[in-house]
């Protein structure tokens, strides 16, 4: 279970969000500027809350009252950024293996095979990030995060920088990830359609506040505009 109870000022804007989600995929839904990215940066430990608590399955990662802040590299939370952020000086194999090396995990050929098959990236291993398409890059970023064996995976609009055609290419992988990877995810998007296909629970954000929480039925109907 992911428990979030935080507040954080960011200039004129502020985030005050509380929710506790059991879902396999918790969707953070809202228009751009609703505070979605700031909120998952807080969960990842990249941004410190002014006040509040972040906990996963009872393991406390932030507790401002107790002065506790676990740095990102010790949280075991994977993060797939909108812009993939593959390391340009490493080939795809080295990118994928990076998290395992940094966490000093044993080589796990079965996991490697499962993840590279799931994401269809086995043929890219010897290439450089600069030679990949946007969709391929995003799939490698997913694989890289998974192979670090995180206990939670954060996805910040992983299809946000892709055109429609590429989105259609990526979406099935995300669905497979949800159904087969066995890692709880927090999925950020402003696209209700995407959310409906992926999220098992939805946190709706508006101007830094949680305005609705529940199953996918809290999402606006297909015709309506996303929450603003």
């Amino acid at each position: 279970m992911l428990r979030v109870e935080v507040s954080r000022r960011l200039g004129e804007f502020s985030i005050e969000a509380s929710f506790a989600s059991e879902g396999r995929v918790t969707g953070l839904f809202g228009a751009s500027g609703a505070g979605k990215t700031s909120l998952i940066n807080i969960i990842a430990g990249l941004l410190r809350p002014d006040r509040g608590i972040i906990a996963i399955d009872g393991d406390v990662l932030d507790d401002t009252a107790a002065g506790l802040h676990i740095p990102p590299h010790r949280r075991r939370i994977g993060y797939v950024f909108q812009d993939a952020r593959l390391f340009p000086h490493l080939d795809i194999r080295q990118n994928l293996d990076y998290g395992r090396r940094m966490n000093r995990l044993a080589v796990d050929p079965a996991l490697w095979a499962r993840v590279t098959d799931l994401l269809d990236i086995g043929s890219l291993l010897d290439r450089r990030p600069g030679k990949l398409s946007g969709g391929e890059r995003q799939r490698v970023a997913l694989g890289r995060a998974l192979l670090a064996q995180p206990r939670l995976l954060l996805l910040d609009e992983p299809m946000g920088s892709l055109d429609e055609e590429r989105k259609v290419e990526i979406l099935p992988y995300l669905v497979r990830l949800r159904d087969e990877a066995n890692v709880p995810m927090v999925y950020v998007s402003h696209d209700a359609g995407e959310m409906r296909q992926l999220a098992t629970q939805v946190v709706m954000l508006r101007r830094g506040r949680v305005v609705a929480f529940g199953g996918p039925e809290v999402l606006p109907s297909a015709a309506a505009n996303p929450a603003g």
Binding site: A44, P71, H73, Y79, R85, F87, Y98, M102, A148
Partner: peptide, 9 residues
């Protein structure tokens, strides 16, 4: 930052 989230101190 990405390297940090992958577990690198």
């Amino acid at each position: 930052q990405a390297a940090g989230t992958l577990g690198a101190p």
